[in-house]
């Protein structure tokens, strides 16, 4: 990636996009009030986001592509974006958004900024109680393939990556993902150290700022979207008259009948969805 290429033809090359989020990396809880406070000086990209950036840099190098980074947030994320430019990103975009914006809106904002990128990388989920849904929304928005929660990724042919993902029981699955794709990666690889000349350049490099996008597909009646959490099942405590042994048995459920864990063993998505739905219906989670 020579400076001359990027300066003259930023649009002419395909690009890898990396989405970063400015998150507190250390929070403190006041033991008296329970107030959580975060120190902005210790905030920045999470290790997973940094891993995404590192993979993005590797892909861009391997394929001779450009690398764009984007973040949705306030001005505080600009040092983080400049650090990404120092590490090798060709351009950085900030979309003006308040923190705690719902995932679909963040995805829409990022899609605006990074929509032209053929391969998009994110950290698996943000540290500030994120759910990891932004990459999924992003893939849906862009009509791209998605591979989320990858342990590692590697470039194979130009525009194609191979990723590894955890499965139950310690097994892994290996996915071959063609562009256009959205990938989210776990923390693991460390971000390279930025060269000193690049650090000095990045201090004054232009940083594109996009206005807040119009939220898409948000039903105001639906309120904030949150992942569904089943209600806890209330268990009666054992009667005081029971013997100690019976009480322990009741609490541990040691001798009671148990249902074996359900597993979805099919490659057909429709069938798999049916199995999951039937299971949830049987347990009373949905009707």
């Amino acid at each position: 990636m020579s400076g001359a290429d990027t300066a003259t033809t930023p649009q002419s090359r395909p690009s890898v996009g990396v989405a970063l989020k400015f998150v507190p990396l250390r929070v403190e809880v006041n033991p008296l009030t329970g107030m959580v406070s975060a120190d902005d000086r210790l905030a920045g990209a999470s290790p997973a986001d940094e891993a995404a950036l590192e993979y993005g840099l590797r892909f861009a190098e391997a394929w001779g592509w450009d690398l764009l980074v984007a973040s949705a947030g306030d001005h505080r994320c600009e040092p983080m974006l400049r650090a990404a430019m120092a590490a090798g990103a060709n351009a950085a975009i900030r979309v003006v958004l308040p923190t705690d914006t719902a995932a679909p809106v963040v995805a829409a904002a990022l899609a605006e900024a990074l929509g032209d990128c053929l391969v998009l990388l994110c950290g698996d989920y943000s540290l500030d109680r994120g759910t990891g849904s932004v990459p999924a929304y992003l893939a849906a928005q862009l009509g791209a393939a998605q591979a989320l929660g990858l342990v590692s990724v590697a470039a194979v042919g130009e525009g194609t990556v191979e990723g590894e993902r955890r499965l139950d029981g310690g097994r892994r699955e290996r996915l071959r993902i063609p562009a256009p794709a959205v990938l989210s990666v776990e923390a693991g690889v460390r971000l390279r150290r930025a060269p000193l000349p690049a650090v000095l350049r990045a201090r004054s490099a232009p940083l594109q700022v996009l206005p807040t996008p119009v939220p898409y597909a948000i039903d105001p009646a639906a309120g904030t979207r949150r992942p569904y959490r089943p209600r806890p099942k209330a268990l009666p405590s054992p009667a005081a008259t029971m013997s100690a042994r019976d009480r322990v048995l009741m609490l541990t459920g040691a001798l009671s009948e148990r249902r074996t864990p359900a597993a979805v063993r099919t490659n057909d998505p429709v069938q798999a969805a049916d199995i999951v739905l039937t299971f949830l219906r049987e347990r009373g989670y949905i009707s």
Partner: peptide
């Protein structure tokens, strides 16, 4: 300095 290309 400890950075790559780090002489100043």
């Amino acid at each position: 300095t400890d950075r790559p290309d780090g002489d100043l």
